[in-house]
Design a protein around this nucleic acid. Structure first.
Lengths: 253, 253
DNA sequence: CTGCGGTGTTGCATTCTCTGCAACCTTCAT
DNA sequence: ATGAAGGTTGCAGAGAATGCAACACCGCAG
């Protein structure tokens, strides 16, 4: 709607690919160098873009700060976190928390006891929406027409032989998930990884987030993982209760 | 330099404070509602802003994705990471990696064996620049006049009785750090926490990042922590070597 | 049912901002 | 020295953004 801003913002994903110099930016935007320069300057003043010593531009520090603040404002995450930790302590597997936003599902928290370090590999990255257990839960809660519209528009990559093949299958799966109130991903994304997931609901009953436990086949079989389902659901329900204000948070002043 | 973009970008920090509706945004920007609407729409199309169910705007998911991608492209971080992990494994304490950018010092990586999870609570958050050991190292490497200019402009909050009190003391400290090639923060930020830090240098010898080990008094005394200094410095040097291309990364194809 | 305040949205004329150009500057390599 | 490549600035014209005012859309109270 606003050409100038539109162009300026288009620079950000471009720089996310890696540092670029003025000429490159101008080319990719299809504008004159001087125009690109002025846009970059404005972005720079706001700290979204940083000029490194070799004169090339890359994304700036303020972006991290903003993402950080945005994260802090997601109060589901804050409430859920201790529960995730506790769940992780009791079962030892990777625990994820995800939300749906604007046709994307993304992880907003993760606890992993064994490889605590690789967090960044996941948080903020879009989830494999057609197969992930948390994605199924989040999409299953949307109104029927919206679900359908999204399902039609998606790609259905064949990560493994058990990946969701097409929109029809996906919609059937969503229907099932909607009814049973939980979801799984049994080797649909990576052959050897299974997940079980449960929804976190707000006061009005709508799904506001979803949490999952994931573990590789070599550690526990899919069947064994499924025995954790009651625990996962209890945890999700506890978060729901606290989030919707029904249960006062324990340990909070 | 570009009014329109400038206004649009000003919306982001505003929303970082918390969700706001159209009227509020227009007021804060000092523009007509219709103008604010169009700016918000543009931000929305780029996913930087999200419209929640109550029609209010807040920061959007794409911000995470961008911050995430940018993070991945910070190659110091990538190179340093395994070293940080190894250091953490051998000493057990919290390890940080930080860079300087545009008058700010920020953590870009952290490894902590005990609470591996709260990474976002630190990463992306501006560092207490007047006291943190890593900040001293990064600022100490700047040209003298720049150092002075920054030192004059800073605030000197009294976190503890050992916090750096003023610009003069800070500049003296920077001079000392510059000469000795390492830095400490002994209870300057939080009474009971000590840090030792060492610089990571690029091929040209300039400091491109700084890493630190932090531990609370109750676990190890400041003196004990200082015995780790050689190890910290070795680690930082190893990262420097690899970053500047002198040492080929081991374990890399 | 009807009128009312608050809020978000659209069409349009005016004006001011952004654009592209061309010349200029800086840096680096030959 | 010399040239080339990329970055920067001033300017006049064009086109985009602005504010206005009218309109649509609630929820609410009379």
């Amino acid at each position: 709607m606003s050409q100038t801003v539109d162009r300026a913002l288009s620079i950000l994903p471009l720089l996310a690919e890696g540092p670029a110099d003025l000429g490159r930016v101008a080319d990719r935007l299809g504008v004159h160098k001087s125009t690109a320069l002025r846009l970059l300057r404005t972005l720079h003043e706001h700290g979204l873009v940083y000029r490194q010593s070799d004169q090339r531009y890359r994304l700036g520090a303020r972006l991290f700060a903003l993402a950080h603040e945005a994260m802090e404002n997601l109060d589901v995450r804050e409430i859920a976190h201790p529960h995730l930790v506790r769940l992780n302590e009791s079962c030892g597997h990777t625990v994820h928390l995800a939300v749906y936003e604007e046709h994307e599902v993304l992880y907003i928290d993760k606890v992993d006891s064994r490889y605590p370090v690789r967090m960044y590999s996941r948080i903020g990255k879009p989830v494999a929406i057609t197969v992930a257990a948390v994605a199924k839960l989040l999409l299953a809660d949307l109104p029927e027409h919206e679900r359908r519209a999204i399902a039609e528009k998606l790609d259905y990559p064949t990560y493994t032989s058990r990946s969701t093949p097409d929109a029809a299958a996906f919609l059937r799966e969503l229907e099932k998930v909607r009814e049973q109130g939980w979801a799984t991903d049994l080797g649909g994304h990576e052959e050897s990884i299974n997940c079980v997931a449960a929804p976190v609901r707000g006061a009005d009953g709508r799904v506001v987030a979803a949490m999952s436990v994931s573990a590789p086949n070599v550690v526990v079989t899919a069947d064994e993982l499924l025995t954790l389902l009651p625990l996962v659901r209890r945890t999700a329900d506890a978060i729901s209760g606290e989030y919707s204000g029904r249960t006062p948070a324990k340990g909070t002043v």
